[in-house]
């Protein structure tokens, strides 16, 4: 809906305080107008901030692309179409898709449980959701080695039944899932807490089943926050190195994801190829950033 339309509606109603909606805009314009510091001070602060960002973020990003194309465009394409590189890209996409899908499911379930029900152990669950944020990814990877490795808890049983988890796709997905689990849940919990349970209760009292209530009432209310969570989850899933590095086994063309592939190329002094693959990940970061900004705008407008 166009912004001007909204404003007209509110003016007709008369009772609505337009300041509520336009507050962000008003604040923004005030920042420009109300500034008591002399020009030089302002200039110095802004310049310092920009220089810092340029030096530590923009410059390295440019360097990645410059290095990627340093041996020419054909080398760049060759590095990306190399069978090992293609398999790494494919694996990364599969892992990201699988872990994001599963985390979408578990994240929504966890947020739903925490915010819509009263049950013992709720605080514990909230703490557990945050655990992956505070555990080093390498430790997370080792956890799975301890579980599924040959010397591990379930290893012998798995080997007996010829089920391969460690150094194969399942372990990579599991490790990625573990590391990215909080993104969806963390994004949803504050929003769902704020929205409360009244709308769900209303839906059920009108005869809606639990599933219909979720699809028609809860999901539309959380969809932008959910997308935002998925986006962050996906970015992290594609870029995850530590946990995946421990469980993947680094089998070329089989269990190497893009970050692992980049590391191998770099260690073999194939700088142009390493940076070519890295440039793909960097582009993913840029796309994520743009989408994230767009979604944030949308969220800001929704949750006024």
């Amino acid at each position: 809906m166009a912004l001007t339309e909204v404003r007209n509606d509110q003016e007709e109603l008369g009772e609505y305080d337009p300041g509520e909606i336009y507050a962000p805009r008003r604040i923004r314009s005030r920042v420009v107008r109300v500034s008591t510091e002399p020009f030089l001070v302002r200039f110095a602060i802004v310049a310092a901030a920009l220089a810092f960002l340029g030096l530590f973020i923009v410059l390295p990003l440019i360097a990645v692309f410059v290095q990627a194309f340093s041996k020419g465009f054909s080398t760049y394409i060759k590095a990306l179409t190399d069978p090992d590189a293609l398999s790494a890209i494919k694996l990364t996409l599969i892992v990201a898709f699988a872990s994001v899908t599963l985390n979408l499911f578990f994240g929504v379930a966890a947020a739903w449980a925490v915010t819509k029900f009263r049950f013992p152990g709720k605080t514990l669950l909230l703490t557990l959701i945050d655990l992956p944020f505070s555990v080093s990814p390498v430790v997370a990877g080792l956890l799975f080695v301890l579980l599924f490795g040959l010397q591990g808890l379930l290893g012998p049983w798995l080997a007996e039944h010829n089920i391969k988890i460690l150094f194969a796709l399942p372990a990579i997905v599991l490790a990625t899932m573990f590391v990215t689990f909080p993104f969806v849940a963390r994004e949803l919990i504050p929003l769902m807490q704020e929205q409360g349970t009244a709308e769900e209760e209303a839906a059920v009292s009108l005869g809606a089943s639990g599933w219909a209530t979720f699809l028609r009432v809860t999901l539309p209310n959380i969809k932008w926050a959910l997308l935002y969570g998925i986006l962050l989850c996906n970015a992290r899933a594609m870029g995850e190195f530590g946990a995946v590095s421990v469980v993947s086994g680094h089998i070329r063309g089989e269990t190497n994801t893009m970050p692992l592939h980049i590391e191998i190329l770099y260690n073999e002094y194939q700088f142009a190829a390493a940076f070519a693959v890295a440039s793909l990940l960097a582009m993913l970061a840029l796309v994520t950033l743009v989408l994230k900004t767009a979604l944030e705008r949308k969220l800001e407008r929704k949750s006024r």
Partner: peptide, 25 residues
Amino acid sequence: GFVFQHYALFRHMTVFENVAFGLRV
């Protein structure tokens, strides 16, 4: 028919869809 204290209207639905909800589900 429960009328909630703060109405609990479905915020993403129009007035029409709010009222129609109980018939649609």
